[in-house]
C-alpha cells in the first residue's frame, strides 16, 4: 500500500516547531560571536614567535578540526562536569561546544587571511617604526578582514545547520522541536520533510549572499 502523506497534521504542529527557530538563531549568533573572538586570539597566537604560545594554539586547531563535533559536544556535556565539577545547562554546553569547535576553523581562516597579506606590507609598517601590535591593528588586520569575510560567511551558514546537532543533548532548538512533533504525530516523513524545508528557506538566502561575497572579492582582486 503506498504511503499516505498527511501534511495537515504537521501543519497544525508548525507553530510549536517554529518555537525552536528562535533558539536556533540565538545559538547561531552567540556561537558565531564567541568563535570569532576565540578564533582571532588563537590565530594571533599561532603567528607568535614564541613556541610556548604557538604549540597549544596549534594543538587546539588541529584537535578541534580533526574530531567530530558530535563527539566534542557529548564530551562537553557529559565528561566536563565529571572532570571539573562544573555543570552547565544543555544550552550552555551546546553553545560552548559550538564556539570551541568553530573557533578552531575561524582561527585557521584568520591565520590564512593574515599571512596572505604580502610581506611588503609588514616591512613598510615596521620600517615606519610601528610595534607589532600597531602593525596588526593599522595595516594587517584591516586588510585581512576583507579577505576573510567570504569564508566566514560560509562558516556562518554551516553553523546555522550544525546547531541541529545540539538537539541530542536536549537543547530545544528547531531540530529538537521537530523530533518532539514527529514522536507525537507518528509522522516522521512529513515532519522531517517540513523541517528540511524550514532549514533550506532560512539558509538559502544567506548562502546566496555568501556567494555574492565571494564574487565581489574575486572581481576586486
Amino acid at each position: 500500500m503506498p504511503y499516505q502523506w498527511r501534511f495537515d497534521v504537521v501543519w497544525q504542529a508548525l507553530p510549536f516547531m517554529l518555537q525552536g527557530l528562535g533558539m536556533t538563531v540565538l545559538l547561531t549568533v552567540a556561537a558565531m560571536v564567541l568563535s570569532l573572538a576565540l578564533g582571532l586570539l588563537v590565530s594571533l597566537a599561532r603567528l607568535s614567535k614564541s613556541s610556548l604560545v604557538t604549540l597549544p594554539a596549534r594543538a587546539y586547531t588541529e584537535f578541534f578540526r580533526g574530531t567530530p563535533f558530535l563527539v566534542q559536544l557529548l564530551w562537553v556535556y557529559y565528561s566536563l562536569p565529571i572532570l571539573t565539577g562544573l555543570r552547565f545547562s544543555a544550552f550552555l554546553s551546546g553553545l560552548i561546544a559550538l564556539a570551541i569547535n568553530l573557533g578552531a576553523f575561524v582561527a585557521e581562516i584568520f591565520r590564512a587571511g593574515i599571512t596572505s597579506i604580502e610581506r611588503g606590507q609588514r616591512e613598510a609598517a615596521i620600517a615606519l617604526g610601528m610595534t607589532w601590535w600597531q602593525m596588526m591593528r593599522r595595516v594587517i588586520l584591516p586588510q585581512a578582514i576583507r579577505r576573510v569575510i567570504p569564508p566566514l560567511g560560509s562558516i556562518w551558514v554551516s553553523l546555522f545547520k550544525d546547531t541541529s546537532l545540539v538537539s541530542v543533548i536536549g537543547v530545544s532548538e528547531l531540530m529538537y522541536q521537530a523530533k518532539a512533533v514527529s514522536i507525537d504525530t507518528y509522522r516522521p516523513m512529513e515532519v522531517y520533510t517540513v523541517l528540511a524545508v524550514i532549514y533550506f528557506v532560512m539558509t538559502y538566502p544567506q548562502a546566496r549572499f555568501v556567494d555574492r561575497l565571494f564574487e565581489r572579492h574575486r572581481v576586486r582582486a
Partner: peptide
Amino acid sequence: GMVFQLFNLFPH
C-alpha cells in the same frame, strides 16, 4: 626612512 622597490603603500 625606507623606500621599497614595490612601494608597499597601504592599499586600504
